[in-house]
Write a protein that binds this DNA or RNA. Structure first.
Lengths: 147, 147
DNA sequence: TCAGATACTTGATCCAATCAAGCATGCATC
DNA sequence: GATGCATGCTTGATTGGATCAAGTATCTGA
């Protein structure tokens, strides 16, 4: 199990609550991935493949190096969870698609990763709206202040 | 930059907001660590060393193998950020403490990791309370339902 | 046609995580 | 106080992720 993100010595209840939540989310994600024999990175990549997509595009979306994608996709391909196929117009490029197995495995992963669903389910509709509003506002606070 | 935790194909606004928040938090943490020349795991471990603590205890707190801690601490020690010293009563055990450098570097990390502070700062006191309540309630929802 | 950009791969390096094995020390019991 | 087991930590091996530099094939625009 990976080491947790934080805790910073949380100086307020709000910071502590945020950390606890993030930590629980991350751990749940990792646990669900492991249950399906996937690493976090593999689960994440598999989750992005809802449409045909090139390696470059995938790397950009995930904000990482293309060679990182190459190796992750290679491991998934070795397990027949994804396939690389030629791009129709650009022979440099490869389109990645999930196989049926890949789709099934990812569905199993989502089922395992009950965290977000369970969390939401414990809130009333109104509370959900409130949470969305607050999280977005909190996030907004992190965008400019350091510029 | 590490691949993001998620997104699961978020089926509700609330799930999406949670993911976005967690992802932003994790990325901010990683960025702040990198700015100080630390890995995420190293920053995390350094953050735990607010008191003298043994390797075993640290491994238990972080939920990982003791040998994992050994190597992380060794790297930190090689940079003079922490020191291992003998346990007064148990000669098997080592107490880890931060050096002054380690303390200073971690302070710099916390300064870099403005995420939680900025997020909180954008909320009124009442909103902060609401957020804490909602996050805790959401977290509670993830505890039993699968048992 | 040619120069430079782009898409991907390969190989190297570093780090984190995990496992098995090993060493020294502590502890309980005989 | 000797024996056997538990505990705390380290070492070595292996796997995987992230990053970087370099290389190949292909595309694009001048």
């Amino acid at each position: 199990m990976a080491v947790p993100t934080g805790p910073v010595t949380a100086s307020t209840d709000a910071e502590r609550a945020m950390f606890d939540f993030v930590d629980a989310y991350d751990r749940a994600y990792e646990t669900a991935a492991l249950e399906q024999g996937l690493s976090v990175a593999q689960a994440c990549v598999l989750g992005r493949l809802t449409r045909e997509i090139g390696m470059r595009e995938l790397a950009d979306e995930l904000g990482c190096d293309a060679s990182n994608i190459t190796q992750i996709i290679s491991r998934l391909e070795a397990r027949d969870l994804v396939r690389r196929r030629p791009h129709p117009n650009d022979r440099r490029s490869r389109q990645i698609v999930r196989t049926d197995e890949g789709i099934a495995l990812y569905a199993a992963f989502e089922k395992s990763f009950a965290f977000a669903r369970s969390a939401v389910a414990n809130l009333t509709a109104h509370e959900q709206d409130q949470l969305v509003t607050l999280l977005r506002k909190a996030l907004d606070g992190t965008r400019e202040p350091n510029r």
